[in-house]
């Protein structure tokens, strides 16, 4: 995912691209560019989903009040 593009934005853009392609009224070179962009987004979204490792943290308040992330062990007290 691009820094500025969230997964949600990427999915929305993908929907849009597929619809544009299916409408089929764009010039071929534009369509090819859309297709390339779509393929890139699909790959990136897929990679995002494949980030298999789930991150779980415990949030604690620092002395100044800022949140600090600590590792979380299930079942801890």
């Amino acid at each position: 995912m691009k820094e500025e593009m969230t997964f949600e934005m990427a999915m929305a853009r993908l929907e849009e691209i597929v619809k544009l392609l299916e409408r089929g009224d764009a010039p071929l070179d534009t369509s090819l560019k859309l297709f390339e962009e779509g393929t890139m987004l699909i790959r990136r979204c897929g990679e995002y989903l494949d980030k298999a490792e789930q991150k779980v943290v415990k949030l604690m308040k620092s002395e100044t009040g800022e949140p600090i992330e600590l590792p979380f062990e299930a079942g801890e007290n």
Partner: peptide, 9 residues
């Protein structure tokens, strides 16, 4: 799994 889980105990 791609969502980060933040526990606030």
């Amino acid at each position: 799994p791609c969502a980060k889980v933040i526990i606030l105990p």
